[in-house]
Design a protein around this nucleic acid. Structure first.
Lengths: 211, 211
DNA sequence: ATTGACATATGACACTGTGTCATATAGAAT
DNA sequence: ATTCTATATGACACAGTGTCATATGTCAAT
């Protein structure tokens, strides 16, 4: 978390610093990003940077967290829109990432985050549930979900389904990025996977009721 | 890929270098690893290092690739053992990672790889299929798989199922690592997810035959 | 308006690390 | 012995990080 000094900063200065950081982290992934570039762009001194942040990571994860929180809000919106259908919401979320976020800069920031800190990105997203076990946000989200269409017996299964689906979404995004698939190809691939998961991958002839 | 000079090296020297690199990459992830440490341990000069490898990444991914190839071979073994049951093979593979690989050093190397270059690790593993489309290895693997118990219509679906399952396995491994779960907890979590995928997550009352 | 106390700003610096290059050495082939 | 080629070396130029002594700004109290 940035230090208090950073939050005391005049809005303009803070904004310029954030923008400079975004440019740098869009250009290259975290480990290649240089503080020198950021402070040059923002027009502040090296010493000041360390008044505001612990180090490069501090700034980076602050930015990333903000973007992820925005994404989570968007997701909750989709959940409401689809009357709690988790899968429909996730499919639309995936689509949203592919298209609405198709602004090149934003995309490259995401790409750098996904490839080099995927575990942070994904665990932040998929832990939307289990980190907020006690607060309103958790209740809000789980309350939204329509459980009737899901083959689950309790909260534990619900959590797992959410994890499976977000794992799938993130892995598809990474695959798209690495292989340079088009949006359409990525979307189709994702839908195919989701359908397989919906139906179940094991062939069984008997009536599902016995499960 | 290391340069020819590296492969021309006397076996002892090469082995010592590899071991030194493993120690360093076990200590810290790629981006924090230092060539200085590796050459100090291996007792070679800085210049020599650059005779053998393009850079740090070159050495790292050479080691990683070797470990992944070993893992792939192990997986094929499990596939044979379980008469082509993809899921049983993967569950055992996951178990193998958790236990057989429980030697602390090896584990930390894996941890560093998973957290910071997960996309490389996973795409290397899950592309076991689609990168070898033409060669014997592909035929060997797909030939091994028992399709009768899978709810698929062709190779495309098979590929997706494999991707889904490996995404799940890797994400579970990462979750275990990040959250510090015990082997048992991780195994249970993985099995729960796998069962959900087997059965399908959508509740349907009708006979599956109509799908 | 001056003082003092505190917050903020600065860039030189010590340090660690990378990749290169001119030079040295070894080995094999003739 | 000589020449040719492969390999070895560490000093060096460069780039980056985090720190610190010092400077500057701010503002409340007198």
């Amino acid at each position: 978390m940035p230090k208090q000094t950073f939050f005391n900063l005049h809005q303009d200065k803070r904004k310029k610093l954030i923008e400079s950081a975004e440019i740098e982290f869009t250009r290259v992934p975290l480990f290649e990003a240089s503080i020198a570039n950021i402070i040059k762009m923002a027009g502040i001194s090296r010493g000041s940077f360390y008044q505001y942040f612990e180090d490069k990571d501090d700034l980076y994860f602050y930015l990333l967290e903000a973007k992820l929180n925005k994404a989570k809000k968007t997701f909750i919106g989709f959940l409401e829109k689809h009357q709690g259908d988790l899968i429909e919401a996730l499919v639309e979320m995936y689509f949203y990432f592919l298209t609405t976020l198709s602004d090149e800069e934003e995309k490259n920031f995401l790409r750098n985050a996904l490839l080099y800190t995927s575990y942070k990105v994904e665990s932040s997203f998929s832990s939307m549930f289990d980190t907020y076990l006690d607060n309103q946000e958790f209740i809000k989200i789980t309350g939204l979900i329509n459980r009737q269409c899901l083959n689950i017996s309790g909260d534990k299964e619900l959590l797992h389904i959410f994890k499976i689906l977000s794992a799938l979404a993130f892995n598809n995004l990474i695959e798209k990025t690495v292989k340079g698939l088009t949006d359409t190809e990525a979307m189709e691939s994702f839908k195919l996977s989701v359908n397989l998961i919906k139906q179940g991958i094991y062939k069984i002839e008997i009536d599902r009721a016995e499960v």
